[in-house]
Protein backbone atom coordinates (compact mmCIF):
# COMPACT_ATOMS: atom_id res chain seq x y z
CA UNK A 1 0.00 0.00 0.00
CA UNK A 2 2.85 2.35 0.83
CA UNK A 3 6.28 2.07 -0.69
CA UNK A 4 9.10 4.36 0.27
CA UNK A 5 12.39 3.97 -1.53
CA UNK A 6 15.62 5.77 -0.68
CA UNK A 7 13.76 8.78 0.63
CA UNK A 8 15.90 11.80 1.42
CA UNK A 9 14.73 15.25 2.42
CA UNK A 10 17.04 18.20 2.89
CA UNK A 11 16.16 21.61 4.23
CA UNK A 12 19.02 23.62 2.84
CA UNK A 13 22.12 22.09 4.42
CA UNK A 14 20.21 20.12 7.00
CA UNK A 15 19.34 16.55 6.10
CA UNK A 16 16.12 15.76 7.94
CA UNK A 17 15.54 12.37 6.38
CA UNK A 18 18.44 10.30 5.18
CA UNK A 19 17.88 7.52 2.69
CA UNK A 20 14.92 5.80 4.31
CA UNK A 21 13.18 2.83 2.69
CA UNK A 22 10.21 0.88 3.97
CA UNK A 23 6.94 -0.61 2.84
CA UNK A 24 3.58 -0.94 4.51
CA UNK A 25 1.15 -3.67 3.56
CA UNK A 26 -2.58 -3.16 3.21
CA UNK A 27 -4.39 -3.30 6.55
CA UNK A 28 -1.23 -2.97 8.62
CA UNK A 29 -0.66 -0.53 11.47
CA UNK A 30 2.87 0.77 11.33
CA UNK A 31 4.33 2.63 14.26
CA UNK A 32 6.83 5.37 13.68
CA UNK A 33 8.97 5.88 16.69
CA UNK A 34 11.72 8.35 17.31
CA UNK A 35 12.92 11.19 19.52
CA UNK A 36 11.89 14.74 18.74
CA UNK A 37 13.48 15.95 15.53
CA UNK A 38 14.11 12.45 14.21
CA UNK A 39 12.28 13.16 10.98
CA UNK A 40 8.94 11.48 11.67
CA UNK A 41 6.84 14.49 10.73
CA UNK A 42 8.94 15.14 7.63
CA UNK A 43 8.28 11.62 6.35
CA UNK A 44 4.58 12.03 7.04
CA UNK A 45 4.44 15.35 5.24
CA UNK A 46 6.05 13.77 2.22
CA UNK A 47 3.60 10.85 2.31
CA UNK A 48 0.71 13.30 2.39
CA UNK A 49 2.14 15.30 -0.54
CA UNK A 50 2.56 18.45 1.56
CA UNK A 51 6.02 18.80 0.09
CA UNK A 52 8.08 16.60 -2.24
CA UNK A 53 11.19 14.64 -1.25
CA UNK A 54 14.64 15.85 -2.25
CA UNK A 55 15.43 12.39 -3.52
CA UNK A 56 13.69 9.03 -3.62
CA UNK A 57 10.41 7.55 -4.68
CA UNK A 58 7.22 7.45 -2.62
CA UNK A 59 4.17 5.47 -3.71
CA UNK A 60 0.90 5.52 -1.81
CA UNK A 61 -2.01 3.30 -2.87
CA UNK A 62 -0.30 2.73 -6.19
CA UNK A 63 0.19 6.40 -7.05
CA UNK A 64 3.35 8.43 -6.99
CA UNK A 65 3.18 11.19 -4.38
CA UNK A 66 5.00 13.64 -6.56
CA UNK A 67 3.60 12.95 -10.02
CA UNK A 68 0.09 11.96 -9.07
CA UNK A 69 -0.42 13.95 -5.93
CA UNK A 70 -4.18 14.50 -6.33
CA UNK A 71 -4.82 10.77 -6.63
CA UNK A 72 -2.76 10.13 -3.51
CA UNK A 73 -4.48 12.90 -1.59
CA UNK A 74 -7.90 11.44 -2.48
CA UNK A 75 -6.92 8.24 -0.72
CA UNK A 76 -5.41 9.50 2.51
CA UNK A 77 -6.65 10.92 5.75
CA UNK A 78 -4.10 13.01 7.62
CA UNK A 79 -3.91 14.19 11.17
CA UNK A 80 -1.07 16.71 11.48
CA UNK A 81 0.80 17.06 14.72
CA UNK A 82 -0.63 20.22 16.22
CA UNK A 83 -4.14 19.40 14.95
CA UNK A 84 -4.65 22.60 12.98
CA UNK A 85 -8.39 23.21 12.64
CA UNK A 86 -10.48 26.17 11.59
CA UNK A 87 -11.26 27.60 15.01
CA UNK A 88 -14.09 29.77 13.77
CA UNK A 89 -16.19 26.83 12.55
CA UNK A 90 -18.61 24.59 14.38
CA UNK A 91 -17.61 20.95 14.68
CA UNK A 92 -20.34 19.65 12.39
CA UNK A 93 -19.86 22.44 9.83
CA UNK A 94 -16.16 21.73 9.77
CA UNK A 95 -16.61 17.99 9.23
CA UNK A 96 -19.16 18.64 6.50
CA UNK A 97 -16.70 21.01 4.84
CA UNK A 98 -13.90 18.46 4.97
CA UNK A 99 -16.17 15.66 3.72
CA UNK A 100 -17.29 17.78 0.79
CA UNK A 101 -13.82 18.98 -0.11
CA UNK A 102 -12.57 15.41 -0.08
CA UNK A 103 -15.03 14.68 -2.85
CA UNK A 104 -18.01 13.20 -1.01
CA UNK A 105 -21.13 13.60 -3.19
CA UNK A 106 -23.48 16.31 -1.91
CA UNK A 107 -26.18 13.94 -0.74
CA UNK A 108 -23.81 11.93 1.41
CA UNK A 109 -21.93 14.77 3.07
CA UNK A 110 -24.27 14.99 6.05
CA UNK A 111 -24.34 11.24 6.57
CA UNK A 112 -20.55 10.88 6.43
CA UNK A 113 -19.98 13.81 8.77
CA UNK A 114 -22.51 12.37 11.21
CA UNK A 115 -20.85 8.96 11.07
CA UNK A 116 -17.41 10.40 11.72
CA UNK A 117 -18.78 12.35 14.69
CA UNK A 118 -20.42 9.21 15.98
CA UNK A 119 -17.25 7.11 15.59
CA UNK A 120 -15.14 9.66 17.40
CA UNK A 121 -17.64 10.45 20.13
CA UNK A 122 -18.25 14.03 19.09
CA UNK A 123 -22.04 14.12 19.14
CA UNK A 124 -22.12 16.20 22.34
CA UNK A 125 -20.05 19.01 20.89
CA UNK A 126 -21.28 18.94 17.29
CA UNK A 127 -22.82 22.40 17.58
CA UNK A 128 -19.93 24.04 19.38
CA UNK A 129 -17.27 26.24 17.88
CA UNK A 130 -13.96 24.45 17.56
CA UNK A 131 -12.25 27.28 19.46
CA UNK A 132 -14.38 26.53 22.52
CA UNK A 133 -13.99 22.75 22.84
CA UNK A 134 -11.43 21.01 25.04
CA UNK A 135 -8.10 19.63 23.84
CA UNK A 136 -9.38 16.06 23.90
CA UNK A 137 -12.30 16.93 21.69
CA UNK A 138 -10.06 18.92 19.36
CA UNK A 139 -7.89 15.86 18.91
CA UNK A 140 -10.95 13.80 18.15
CA UNK A 141 -12.20 16.33 15.62
CA UNK A 142 -8.77 16.02 14.00
CA UNK A 143 -9.11 12.24 13.81
CA UNK A 144 -12.71 12.56 12.61
CA UNK A 145 -11.68 14.79 9.72
CA UNK A 146 -9.00 12.28 8.74
CA UNK A 147 -11.56 9.47 8.81
CA UNK A 148 -14.51 11.24 7.31
CA UNK A 149 -13.96 10.08 3.77
CA UNK A 150 -13.16 6.46 4.67
CA UNK A 151 -9.65 6.75 3.20
CA UNK A 152 -7.53 3.75 2.33
CA UNK A 153 -4.53 5.15 4.16
CA UNK A 154 -4.53 6.99 7.46
CA UNK A 155 -1.53 9.01 8.51
CA UNK A 156 -1.69 10.09 12.13
CA UNK A 157 1.01 12.27 13.62
CA UNK A 158 0.92 11.66 17.38
CA UNK A 159 -2.80 10.93 17.60
CA UNK A 160 -3.09 10.59 21.38
CA UNK A 161 -1.13 13.61 22.55
CA UNK A 162 -3.02 15.70 25.07
CA UNK A 163 -5.78 13.23 25.84
CA UNK A 164 -6.74 11.92 29.25
CA UNK A 165 -6.28 8.16 29.94
CA UNK A 166 -9.89 7.31 29.17
CA UNK A 167 -9.81 9.19 25.88
CA UNK A 168 -6.47 7.63 25.00
CA UNK A 169 -8.02 4.22 25.45
CA UNK A 170 -11.00 5.16 23.31
CA UNK A 171 -8.84 6.56 20.52
CA UNK A 172 -6.59 3.51 20.61
CA UNK A 173 -9.59 1.23 20.31
CA UNK A 174 -10.80 3.33 17.43
CA UNK A 175 -7.45 3.04 15.66
CA UNK A 176 -7.36 -0.69 16.30
CA UNK A 177 -10.77 -1.08 14.71
CA UNK A 178 -9.48 0.74 11.68
CA UNK A 179 -6.76 -1.81 11.03
CA UNK A 180 -7.66 -4.32 8.39
CA UNK A 181 -9.94 -1.95 6.51
CA UNK A 182 -7.44 0.87 6.46
CA UNK A 183 -3.70 1.04 6.36
CA UNK A 184 -2.44 3.16 9.23
CA UNK A 185 0.85 4.88 9.88
CA UNK A 186 1.12 6.57 13.21
CA UNK A 187 3.97 8.35 14.85
CA UNK A 188 4.36 8.58 18.56
CA UNK A 189 6.86 8.96 21.31
CA UNK A 190 4.65 7.09 23.77
CA UNK A 191 6.26 3.69 23.65
CA UNK A 192 3.58 1.46 25.15
CA UNK A 193 1.27 2.79 22.48
CA UNK A 194 3.39 1.09 19.87
CA UNK A 195 3.24 -2.28 21.60
CA UNK A 196 -0.51 -1.96 22.00
CA UNK A 197 -1.39 -0.74 18.55
CA UNK A 198 1.20 -1.53 15.98
CA UNK A 199 1.91 -4.73 14.12
CA UNK A 200 5.26 -3.37 13.16
CA UNK A 201 7.47 -0.56 14.34
CA UNK A 202 10.12 1.51 12.67
CA UNK A 203 12.47 3.36 14.98
CA UNK A 204 14.13 6.35 13.38
CA UNK A 205 16.76 8.63 14.74
CA UNK A 206 18.42 11.58 13.03
CA UNK A 207 16.67 10.79 9.79
CA UNK A 208 17.80 7.18 9.63
CA UNK A 209 16.04 3.89 10.32
CA UNK A 210 17.77 2.28 13.30
CA UNK A 211 15.44 -0.69 13.75
CA UNK A 212 12.43 -2.22 12.10
CA UNK A 213 10.53 -5.20 13.48
CA UNK A 214 7.49 -6.39 15.38
CA UNK A 215 7.45 -4.76 18.83
CA UNK A 216 7.71 -8.13 20.67
CA UNK A 217 10.71 -9.22 18.57
CA UNK A 218 12.51 -6.03 19.38
CA UNK A 219 11.95 -6.69 23.06
CA UNK A 220 13.45 -10.20 23.09
CA UNK A 221 16.61 -9.10 21.33
CA UNK A 222 17.61 -6.93 24.20
CA UNK A 223 19.60 -7.98 27.32
CA UNK A 224 17.70 -9.29 30.35
CA UNK A 225 17.56 -7.33 33.54
CA UNK A 226 16.83 -8.48 37.06
CA UNK A 227 15.65 -6.68 40.16
CA UNK A 228 17.08 -7.79 43.48
CA UNK A 229 16.20 -6.76 47.01
CA UNK A 230 18.69 -8.07 49.50
CA UNK A 231 19.25 -7.33 53.19
CA UNK A 232 22.83 -6.92 54.43
CA UNK A 233 25.92 -4.78 53.83
CA UNK A 234 25.19 -2.96 50.63
CA UNK A 235 28.80 -2.45 49.56
CA UNK A 236 29.70 -6.07 50.09
CA UNK A 237 26.61 -7.28 48.24
CA UNK A 238 27.48 -4.99 45.34
CA UNK A 239 31.01 -6.38 45.11
CA UNK A 240 29.84 -9.96 45.32
CA UNK A 241 27.15 -9.43 42.72
CA UNK A 242 29.53 -8.02 40.15
CA UNK A 243 31.79 -11.06 40.56
CA UNK A 244 29.04 -13.54 39.66
CA UNK A 245 29.45 -15.15 36.23
CA UNK A 246 26.89 -14.13 33.61
CA UNK A 247 26.38 -10.73 35.22
CA UNK A 248 27.29 -7.81 32.99
CA UNK A 249 26.52 -4.87 35.18
CA UNK A 250 25.21 -3.96 38.61
CA UNK A 251 23.44 -0.80 39.54
CA UNK A 252 22.50 0.16 43.06
CA UNK A 253 19.08 1.73 43.37
CA UNK A 254 17.61 3.63 46.27
CA UNK A 255 17.00 1.34 49.24
CA UNK A 256 13.45 0.46 50.19
CA UNK A 257 12.82 -0.41 53.83
CA UNK A 258 15.79 -2.32 55.31
CA UNK A 259 16.64 -4.03 52.03
CA UNK A 260 19.09 -2.80 49.42
CA UNK A 261 17.83 -2.65 45.87
CA UNK A 262 19.93 -3.56 42.85
CA UNK A 263 19.26 -3.88 39.17
CA UNK A 264 21.46 -6.40 37.49
CA UNK A 265 22.02 -6.72 33.77
CA UNK A 266 22.41 -10.34 32.79
CA UNK A 267 24.49 -11.46 29.87
CA UNK A 268 23.38 -15.06 30.27
CA UNK A 269 20.10 -15.30 32.07
CA UNK A 270 20.33 -18.85 33.40
CA UNK A 271 23.96 -18.71 34.46
CA UNK A 272 23.48 -15.38 36.17
CA UNK A 273 20.37 -16.47 38.00
CA UNK A 274 22.01 -19.58 39.40
CA UNK A 275 25.20 -17.71 40.25
CA UNK A 276 23.36 -15.03 42.18
CA UNK A 277 21.36 -17.60 44.09
CA UNK A 278 24.53 -19.46 45.08
CA UNK A 279 26.29 -16.23 46.04
CA UNK A 280 23.43 -15.22 48.35
CA UNK A 281 23.39 -18.62 50.05
CA UNK A 282 27.15 -18.61 50.45
CA UNK A 283 27.22 -15.18 52.07
CA UNK A 284 24.00 -15.74 54.05
CA UNK A 285 22.46 -12.54 52.75
CA UNK A 286 18.79 -12.08 53.34
CA UNK A 287 16.94 -12.36 50.02
CA UNK A 288 13.77 -10.25 49.96
CA UNK A 289 12.88 -10.18 46.32
CA UNK A 290 14.31 -11.47 43.05
CA UNK A 291 12.53 -11.04 39.76
CA UNK A 292 13.23 -10.63 36.07
CA UNK A 293 12.35 -7.23 34.71
CA UNK A 294 10.27 -7.14 31.58
CA UNK A 295 12.25 -5.41 28.85
CA UNK A 296 10.38 -2.32 27.88
CA UNK A 297 10.43 -0.63 24.56
CA UNK A 298 11.90 2.34 26.38
CA UNK A 299 15.06 0.40 27.06
CA UNK A 300 15.38 -0.76 23.48
CA UNK A 301 14.65 2.66 22.23
CA UNK A 302 17.22 4.32 24.44
CA UNK A 303 19.73 1.63 23.62
CA UNK A 304 19.25 1.99 19.90
CA UNK A 305 19.22 5.73 19.92
CA UNK A 306 22.24 6.12 22.17
CA UNK A 307 24.18 3.41 20.33
CA UNK A 308 23.63 5.38 17.17
CA UNK A 309 25.08 8.46 18.80
CA UNK A 310 28.07 6.74 20.36
Amino acid sequence: MIEVENLTKEYGEFRAVDNISFTVEKGEILGFLGPNGAGKTTVMRILTCFFPPTKGKVMVAGYNCFEDSLNVRKRIGYLPQRVPLYEDMKVNDYLRFVAAIKGTPGKEVNRKAAKAMDDCGLSEVSNKLISTISGGYRQRVGIAQALVNDPEVLILDEPTVGLDPKQIKEIRNLIKELAGKHTVILSTHILPEVSILCGRVIIINKGKVVAEDRPENLATESAQRMLLRIGGDAQLIGQELSRVGGVKGVEREQASGDANVFTVVLEDEKLGRQGIQAMIERNRFELVEMRLLEVSLEDIFIKLVTKEEA
Binding site: R45, T48, C49, F50, L70, R73, K74, I76, Y78, P80, R82, P84, L85, Y86, E87, V98, I101, K102, G103, Q145
Partner: peptide, 14 residues
Protein backbone atom coordinates in the same frame (compact mmCIF):
# COMPACT_ATOMS: atom_id res chain seq x y z
CA UNK B 1 0.46 30.67 11.28
CA UNK B 2 -2.11 28.26 12.67
CA UNK B 3 -0.91 25.38 10.49
CA UNK B 4 -4.26 24.79 8.82
CA UNK B 5 -2.48 25.24 5.50
CA UNK B 6 -1.02 21.78 6.04
CA UNK B 7 -4.46 20.20 5.91
CA UNK B 8 -5.71 22.55 3.22
CA UNK B 9 -2.87 21.66 0.87
CA UNK B 10 -3.19 17.95 1.53
CA UNK B 11 -6.89 17.91 0.70
CA UNK B 12 -7.50 16.54 -2.79
CA UNK B 13 -8.03 19.92 -4.43
CA UNK B 14 -5.95 21.97 -6.84
Amino acid sequence: KTGTIELLLTFPIN
